[in-house]
């Protein structure tokens, strides 16, 4: 298993050219993410969270600043194949069954594995995600929550050093979301992967993470970093703790106060 890197983001800025002029998606972001930790970024829609993940996955080049993995600046070729990705949409291949979908990442990023090894690994992940017996089902035969589980298995199966998750549970109903949050924690504990998770759900951020960065609306800046102290394993009861509610209130206050300011600035 590959060791998770210490991620440092230094003075990162990203701007796009659009028809109406230059859009600053991210403005001078600096963050440190400990190896193997669960790090969540909370912010309003359009604060550049997704842009940050695209830079981390090497798909997008920043216009300023840099990202270091273990002190080495990442470039496209180095980071590719080391980073898993889960999106809001499951983005499964409709022509592949669950098992073959999970195997996709290994086919591309782990060419050294034999087909039999890939299949064994994929079955292993589907099993711990509670999808045993559904290996041969096609995506359209699975519920939304099951599709997203397959998508998480696909991202974890090739043992990435970093797992990027872009609002992976936003499209699911409340009950499914809570189940999957707990399941994700269970899956993550079996890996040494660093998770960088994006959400606009405050309870979700608090339940899952060790650290939270609260971001402002566009151009995205880090308003505050918060350590989340609740002991693991976190479950149903964690949501009921009084400290949980207090912390959620604090984050909500941060987001509430900053949003109108950013809106008038545009």
């Amino acid at each position: 298993m590959s060791k998770a890197p210490h991620i440092s983001i230094k003075g990162l800025s990203v701007s796009f050219k659009s028809r109406t002029g230059t859009v600053n998606a991210l403005n001078n972001i600096s963050l440190d993410i400990a190896p193997g930790s669960f790090f969540t970024i909370v912010g309003p829609s359009g604060c550049g969270k997704t842009t940050l993940l695209k830079v981390l996955s090497g798909v997008l080049q920043p216009s300023g600043g840099e990202v270091l993995f273990d002190g080495v600046a990442i470039d496209k070729n180095k980071v590719q194949g080391q980073v898993g990705y889960v999106f809001q949409r499951s983005l499964l291949l409709p022509w592949r069954n669950a098992l073959d979908n999970v195997m996709l990442t290994m086919e591309v990023a782990r060419r050294d594995m034999s087909r039999a090894d890939r299949e064994r690994e994929a079955r292993h992940w589907l099993k711990i995600a509670g999808l045993e017996g559904f290996e041969k089902r096609f995506p359209h035969e699975l519920s939304g929550g099951m599709q997203q589980r397959v998508s998480i298995c696909r991202a974890l199966a090739f043992r990435p050093k970093v797992l990027l998750m872009d609002e992976p549970f936003a499209a699911l109903d409340e009950i499914t979301r809570e189940t999957l949050q707990e399941e994700l924690l269970r899956l993550w504990m079996q890996t040494e992967t660093t998770v960088v998770f994006i959400t606009h759900s405050i309870p979700e951020a608090l339940l899952l993470s060790e650290q939270i960065a609260v971001m402002s609306a566009r151009p995205g800046r880090v308003l505050e970093r918060i350590e989340v102290p609740f002991p693991r394993p976190r479950e149903e009861a964690t949501r009921e703790l009084p400290e949980f509610g207090a912390m959620a209130g604090h984050v909500r206050g941060l987001l509430r106060h900053r949003e109108p300011v950013a809106a008038t600035a545009q």
């Binding site: 695209k54 090497g58 798909v59 590719q80 983005l91 291949l93 990442t105 090739f158």
Partner: peptide
């Protein structure tokens, strides 16, 4: 789906892999 192709990029897929595994099917 362009997000699917970006996903393949993040895995380090070659152009040929993107064609045979994604675009063609």
């Amino acid at each position: 789906d362009s997000e699917l192709l970006q996903y393949m990029d993040s895995l380090g897929a070659s152009g040929w892999e993107k064609f045979t595994k994604i675009s063609l099917p």
